[in-house]
Design a protein around this nucleic acid. Structure first.
Lengths: 328, 328
DNA sequence: AACCAATGCAAAACCGGTTTTGCATTGGTA
DNA sequence: TACCAATGCAAAACCGGTTTTGCATTGGTT
């Protein structure tokens, strides 16, 4: 049932119906009596306006685009859930896409979202998206970047203290008495990964220890990744390991489990994972406060939507050191 | 830039531009020369039609609504990723929402999605949605239900063989030599859970063993859930455990880890989890082939979209028994 | 030469709303 | 009682597309 049909049924014009439905009866100088008659009828038939037409007319869709690396991931999945929950409280919906770290795909996704007239975008950008994201910023569409900062861009950003948290993690390994610490990370130019790497290097240097770094390509998964870790462990002689992200640690745990010849390492990783509480030994980590991050993302985005001239936020939420058996 | 502006710029009518852009130049009897002139200009300015206006005019949005229980979950997260990937191949996007098993919320979500004019819906329904889903079916909107069947409804369904897979799992425990098997499940009337329960019961009975069942409320999480499992283990004397879903098994593993007084159980669970490969012992399970399920969901939905009169599919994809250390 | 069909495109109607403008009435003031 | 502002609503314009209809012109028959 359309607004036109309602109008015809009640012998009024559609503008009148529209004004009443949207609570603008007063502003449209519609009499209370007529407003009531319209509302009663509208309620009785359970009319709901066509959201597409409404969006077209108003330019607002009450939909937010969410672009992450992988919705099935143990970091992005839960963060997506929290974002969805917070947004729902404000009557926004989520259109999402996973980039799988593919730059081309990420740009396509961005284009499509803009097409669909989202009211704002939340994204963890991939490498090589600088230009596209700059264009996005130029459109003035409310935007929040999270997890990966693009340093050249001025926009809202929410993330954790990658550099200092990384330093704390590695320093903690030294404090536990480990002398030689290897790092396993993703071979990536993403800023958050470089920050974590830099943190490791500085602390290792300031402890007069030597760097041992394994950089694994993002797309290398499964057995090939495990093989790389396996030989890295075989060819080096450190007594502790630092991982830049949880799934690398999980891979290493699988390697250690499968190949008993490896010794027992001190271990700490960035990002928590349900596995770490159960593994033998349980695994220490720097945990990003996911719910808080999600909350700040939404608050920042809605702030921008409601006030386009609001200055950009740059919110750093510290990670928390969770100490478990792997560093004892 | 709108189609109207393009038309003005080229001194043609917008209908002509629209026809050319949509490859209907011939059907609209537009001369090749003019079509080329329009296409050249359109390409040169990188014009992209407003998807909202297009959807309003055509009634098609190229967006699919995906309603799951929890996008951050180790079953629904990965399945959502696969669904998204398959749909993208056909140029569809995904509007998603998590119901968190809340019936009211689930119905609200459904309403909103219909508002947004999705071209189809993929959902894992919650309990109590029978009526709403029946209404949805009555609208003839392409729909695929997965994971949880609602027996009273006639529509497309994709799921695994819960009953027979459950029987195989429990039977396997008996074959391993266990004599007394406890089951831990969710206190739910969801059909897939009832089927798994029924499978357990039948096999236990036919082996002349006794049933021991713990039903945990869905909303009971964290420590309360663990406490329930803890006392269930303390008060009974079985030698093996069967879990109706992976997160219950994970909770039990935490209990077993925390409380050393419990003995060593044979264990098998429905649904795989990354933890199970790493736990000591590694955990056997009935694994649902997630990627295949996602694929069939998409194929079925697109089939319905392209042919509204296609008969409904009811596809059962067998789960696979993964044998690990916990049943040795 | 008159007629008819085919061609090439413009114009208009439509999708379902929102918002601005405009036109009668009414009522109050000078 | 003439004038002006306020009232109450309808009409129209708009959002940006798609699709049907309609109107000249051209070209080919008889």
């Amino acid at each position: 049932m359309s607004i036109k049909e309602i109008a015809a049924k009640l012998n009024v014009s559609k503008s009148t119906v529209s004004l009443v439905i949207n609570g603008k009866a007063e502003q449209g100088r519609i009499s209370e009596a007529l407003a009531k008659r319209i509302m009663d009828y509208v309620d009785s038939i359970g009319y709901k306006p066509n959201a597409l037409a409404k969006s077209l007319a108003t330019g607002k869709s009450r939909t937010i685009g969410l672009i992450v690396e992988n919705i099935g991931d143990s970091f992005f999945g839960p963060i997506a859930l929290y974002i969805e929950e917070y947004l729902r409280k404000y009557n926004y919906h989520v259109l999402y896409s996973s980039t799988l770290n593919d730059e081309k795909l990420a740009n396509t996704i961005l284009d499509t979202m803009l097409d669909k007239y989202v009211d704002g975008i939340i994204m963890a950008p991939t490498l090589g998206q600088e230009e596209q994201v700059q264009k996005l910023i130029d459109t003035k569409l409310p935007l929040v970047v999270f997890d990966r900062r693009i340093p050249s861009l001025e926009t809202n950003y929410i993330g954790t203290d990658n550099y200092s948290a990384s330093k704390r993690a590695v320093q903690y390994l030294f404090e536990c008495g480990y002398k030689s610490i290897g790092m396993i990370t993703i071979d990536s130019k993403q800023v958050q990964m470089l920050d974590r790497l830099r943190g490791y290097r500085e602390v290792v240097d300031s402890n007069n220890s030597t760097e041992d770094i394994l950089q694994i390509p993002y797309n290398l998964v499964g057995d090939s990744r495990k093989a790389m870790i396996d030989s890295f462990l075989s060819e080096n002689s450190f007594d502790a390991l630092y991982f830049s992200t949880n799934y690398l640690c999980v891979s290493a745990l699988k390697v250690l489990k499968a190949n008993k010849k490896h010794k027992h390492y001190g271990m700490i990783t960035f990002d928590d994972h349900e596995i770490f509480e159960l593994n033998l030994p349980t695994i220490s980590c720097m945990r990003q406060p996911i719910e808080e991050i999600a909350k700040q993302i939404v608050v920042t985005l809605l702030g921008q939507i409601n006030d386009h001239k609001k200055p950009f936020d740059d919110i750093i939420i510290p990670s928390e050191l969770i100490i478990r058996e792997s560093t004892q």
